[in-house]
């Protein structure tokens, strides 16, 4: 296995958890090869230590105002240049909004194979990757095989790969990328980033999700879901029925035409669990269903189910969680 390059995504000076998961995956695959990280942004230098502790043998760094915002061309060039310089066998990043753009961009620049949204990776003796990835909205799990061991690009589904325990004794090796990729020819430029008012915890990154469906009856009743989510430090999700009714924006939707999530715990309240909803959440580690209909399909995939009225159950659960957290 040759070197593995991990694109360590950060936003607002915070590393994405999936960046550490990518380091974890890289470390497992690397055997005695090197794991290199590339970190791009402004005010990023402080994060290099974390990358080292979590498995990077060397960190390539861009800490520059011109790179404070993502651009496919600028970031793509930086990653492709380092991949070439290091003759990277494999380039890993999270399947985030950014990674879904950057991964194919880098693959296009390098001509290497691209596997998106991977849930498992294996390597053969030559360093060629076999990736496991969902297709058809999760109705199929496929394995894809790379036929070349150079410049293989994979994006990783968040919350799937384990993070390494930190090793704070490791000496960090950081190299500033110089000269910086020329941005003067970049033709698609971020002018502004609007923060959405609602997302305390981002759905696709959340370890726990509480979601509500049509069973909530009215938009204001989402406050019941939000109270439980707050108590758990969880993100809030919604079924398409709740989104189509205008109770929550599309960014909350879980499912085939919404987001795909794989938290440790998914609590579905007043969600029937239609096949299209399941497409987005059935890979959650634990599923809890709260629904008054014992025949709701959600119970077929739930580890724990409570048949009952969510307006009674959910507040009780919120209180119980608060009690534990205060202990």
């Amino acid at each position: 296995m040759g070197h593995i390059l991990v694109f360590a995504e950060q936003r607002d000076g915070k590393l994405k958890r999936v960046a550490l998961e990518a380091l974890g995956a890289a470390r497992q695959l690397a055997a005695d090869a090197q794991v290199l990280a590339i970190l791009i942004g402004e005010h990023t230098a402080a994060l290099t230590q974390t990358l080292t502790a979590r498995g990077a043998d060397k960190v390539y760094l861009i800490d520059d105002a011109g790179f404070s915002h993502y651009s496919s061309e600028g970031y793509g060039r930086a990653v492709a240049d380092i991949a070439k310089k290091e003759e990277a066998t494999l380039i890993l990043m999270g399947a985030t909004a950014l990674g879904k753009d950057l991964g194919p961009k880098v693959a296009a620049k390098l001509g290497g194979p691209f596997a998106g949204d991977c849930i498992a990776l294996e390597t053969d003796s030559e360093g060629k990757i076999t990736a496991t990835r969902p297709m058809y909205g999760g109705k199929i799990i496929s394995t894809v095989k790379c036929r070349t061991a150079t410049y293989q690009v994979a994006t990783l589904r968040p919350n799937v790969f384990p993070v390494n325990d930190p090793d704070d004794t490791k000496e960090s090796l950081v190299e500033n990328i110089a000269p910086l990729p020329d941005l003067s020819s970049v033709k698609a430029v971020i002018k502004e980033v609007l923060a959405s008012a609602n997302t305390k915890v981002e759905l696709t990154e959340a370890d726990i999700i509480v979601s509500g469906g049509r069973g909530l009856k009215a938009p204001e009743n989402f406050s019941i879901i939000e109270a439980l989510a707050d108590a758990l430090g969880a993100a809030v999700g919604a079924s398409r029925a709740a989104v189509d009714a205008g109770w929550k924006p599309h960014s909350y939707q879980v499912g085939l035409t919404g987001k795909t999530v794989s938290p440790s715990l998914y609590i579905a309240c007043g969600v029937s669990g239609a096949i299209q909803h399941q497409a987005g959440m059935s890979s959650s580690k634990y599923i809890v269903a709260i629904n008054k209909d014992p025949n709701a399909p959600i119970f077929k995939i739930a580890n724990y189910g409570i048949v009952g009225d969510l307006f009674e159950i959910v507040p009780l659960l919120t209180e119980a969680v608060k009690k534990i957290k205060n202990e």
């Binding site: 076999t130 999760g138 199929i140 799990i141 790379c146 036929r147």
Partner: peptide
């Protein structure tokens, strides 16, 4: 092709 589909399977059943 630099990448090929190898095997399709149904998702793990819960």
């Amino acid at each position: 092709a630099v990448i090929t589909l190898d095997q399709l399977s149904p998702p793990p059943t819960r």
